[in-house]
Design a protein around this nucleic acid. Structure first.
Length: 405
RNA sequence: GGGUGGAUACCCAAGCGGUCAACGGGGCCAGACUGUAAAUCUGGUGGCUCUGCCUUCGCAGGUUCGAAUCCUGCUCCACCCA
């Protein structure tokens, strides 16, 4: 096992705050001395089915702890999910039903397993304990915090100021999260920066059961593919860990140049000096982003798939067709006697566009071309001669070879 | 319980009797540029048998030659006072 200082150095990467830091170092030292791994908690609420790169920031940290010999404890917040985490939001989350949550939870674990070693991890559902609670238990928990403490939270304070609703059950969220730490006797808890409040609640609760208060370790919030707002499912600016290599790579390339440094730090293990070199003045940001994209895709799909995705991307930006062109079937009776079909109808039939109207727009905009010579069709009234094997393209990303049936 | 404000296309948000398929922004799509799906610029963004027609502005009715805009009822949401 590495000594405490060496561990701290590794674990520090990309971390925002360790509260309290001095205590963390001592805890690491003791863990080594007594050969007792730290219990490192990370909670995730199964609110949707997609684990994205934003979640992987703390998950990757958890993995680092595992690799250093510590114990990863994953909490599936099936009960907290029904409350909805108010952190970092300026509005109430919509509540989920128990069935939705259960279904999501199963899917989550599968995805989380892509990052951490589930074999060696401990997994709990917080419904395991909250599900057994009675009303008096809830009261006893609520006794631990005042309205003033709760409403001092930035997100609640902001909502109150903006005259937006704050529901009572939301106030329970940080307490529930804190209690999870008591149940599993956490040494460290990971979370995003906006989680600090919730992470510290546990420190108040743990002594009630004679436990040492946990260390809070916060990670920066990853920005989404739009380069400004936090990555999130509801904002539609996320890259999912379960997405295909091509999707992941393409989405990485579509991230603005500015957040690249953050992505390198939080999503890859590339040593910082190398990162600095890649992002240095005068280098093409495209190349840095390609390294970034490959590194991320490789984590979920392997080196080879990452290289393939990058190569396919290069072909596309060079204006070449991809190596594998998907085949679509077109019923021959859609064609007229001379084997023609109206251009908008063609786009709709092969599923490139949802409506004739939108197909017309693409055509008029110059986005539609056919055949080896890429003849551009801009007249929405044009009739296209369709032969078996005709290649049609719409925009830069849609391409297909037609097979008449 | 009382009061006030609100519900408009994917999201935010104008419009308040005709010139409204509905300003503006975001997002998204396409084009130009760039060996980035970045940035920037341009165009588009309900549907159709498309120089016209059909269906949209919380729901249901009504007034009017004509309504997203006025009236009535309903549903939903929020805030304030108690």
């Amino acid at each position: 096992m590495l000594d405490a200082q060496a561990q701290l150095e590794i674990l520090r990467r990309g971390v925002d705050q360790i509260v309290p830091e001095a205590e963390f170092l001592k805890r690491l030292e003791r863990s080594i001395r007594e050969n007792r791994p730290l219990r490192v908690k990370y909670g995730i609420d199964p609110t949707g089915i997609d684990v994205h790169l934003g979640h992987t920031v703390p998950l990757r940290k958890l993995r680092q702890f595992q690799d250093l010999g510590h114990k990863a404890v994953v909490i599936i917040g099936n009960y907290t999910a029904m409350v909805g985490d108010p952190s970092g939001r300026d509005e109430t989350r919509s509540a989920l039903t128990a069935e939705q949550v259960a279904a999501n939870a199963r899917d989550y674990l599968k995805q989380v397993g892509r990052i951490i070693d589930l074999e060696k991890a401990e997994v709990h559902h917080n419904g395991d304990w909250f599900g057994k609670w009675g009303f008096l238990d809830v009261l006893d928990l609520m006794r631990r915090m005042t309205l003033g403490q709760i409403s001092a939270r930035e997100d609640f304070a902001k909502r109150i100021k903006d005259e937006k609703p704050v529901y009572l059950h939301e106030c329970l969220y940080p307490l529930m999260q804190g209690w999870d730490s008591v149940e599993i006797d956490a040494d460290v808890e990971l979370g995003g920066t906006e989680q600090l409040f919730s992470l510290l609640v546990a420190r108040q609760l743990q002594p009630l059961r004679g436990q040492e208060p946990q260390i809070a370790m916060t990670m920066p919030i990853l920005v989404g593919t739009d380069g400004t707002r936090r990555m999130g499912k509801s904002l539609g600016n996320y890259i999912g860990v379960a997405e295909s290599p091509e999707e992941q790579f393409g989405k990485v390339m579509s991230v603005p140049d500015e957040p690249m440094a953050q992505y390198f730090t939080l999503l890859t293990d590339l040593p910082q000096p190398e990162v600095r070199e890649l992002l240095a003045e005068g280098t093409n940001p495209r190349d840095a982003k390609e390294v970034l994209g490959k590194s991320i895709v490789a984590q979920y799909h392997g080196r080879e798939a990452a290289d393939r995705a990058a190569a396919a991307f290069r072909r596309r930006s060079a204006g070449e067709d991809p190596l594998e062109i998907p085949v679509v079937h077109l019923s021959a009776d859609k064609l007229d006697a001379e084997g023609r079909i109206a251009a908008p109808a063609l786009l709709k039939e092969i599923g490139f566009e949802a409506s004739t109207s939108s197909a017309r727009r693409v055509i008029e905009g110059g986005g539609f071309n056919v055949g080896p010579r890429r003849e551009v069709v801009t007249d929405p009234k044009a009739l296209v001669y369709v032969k078996d094997g005709l290649i049609v393209r719409s925009g830069k990303r849609k391409i297909a070879e037609i097979r008449l049936v």
